[in-house]
Amino acid sequence: MTDLVKENKLLDAVSQAFKIKGKVIRNRRVEVYADKNMVSSILLFAKKQLGYIHMAHMTCVDWIDQGEFELVYTIYSPIEKITLFVKTRIDRENPEMENIDSIWDQANTYEREMREMFGIEFPGLVGEHDFILEDWDQIPPMRKEFDTHKYSAETFFSRPGREDAKEVRDELSKRSGTIVPDFAKKYSRE
């Protein structure tokens, strides 16, 4: 069992520099919680001063019951071989977050996707609004309140007479001489 010396040293360095809280999750994993206005400063500090030069990931979690989006920045040091998570929460109403693509260029792709999928605005973000979706006029689809069932029921339709594939099952029953059950109904998640 390692005694997590490097991890605690990293946590101390970040938490003391910015007066923020955090914890060592396990070996090679450290997380800190920051106010949204401090995130870019922490990331820049970690990159320039501590050697966390690889931005491994950036994600958003929609905590709809708490009315917040959680943004998680995952950065990695190839020297220390430790992953640092910088976590922040922003309001779900008119969500806005600092644009960090001046620190890591590839953040631009993540931010464009979050703008499209969660509706988070990143002031100064360059790039076409349509990244993955095209002419999307509904609520951002990765938000928890977006109902995929309702959307597909309203948008798509079955060919008349084929809603339950009955004629296919009848034909198969005729050929095989056995009754083919309605598997879609039998194993439905509803």
Binding site: A56, H57, C60, V61, V72, T74, Q106, T109
Partner: peptide, 28 residues
């Protein structure tokens, strides 16, 4: 990389995958 979030339920609350192509295919 997979970033997986659980709220303690029987379904994943959020799963976000990052593959190499996400950077290689766009910014790089």
């Amino acid at each position: 990389g997979f970033h997986v979030t659980s709220d303690g339920g029987n379904k994943p609350y959020r799963v976000h995958v990052k593959g190499a192509a996400y950077t290689h295919g766009v910014t790089v």
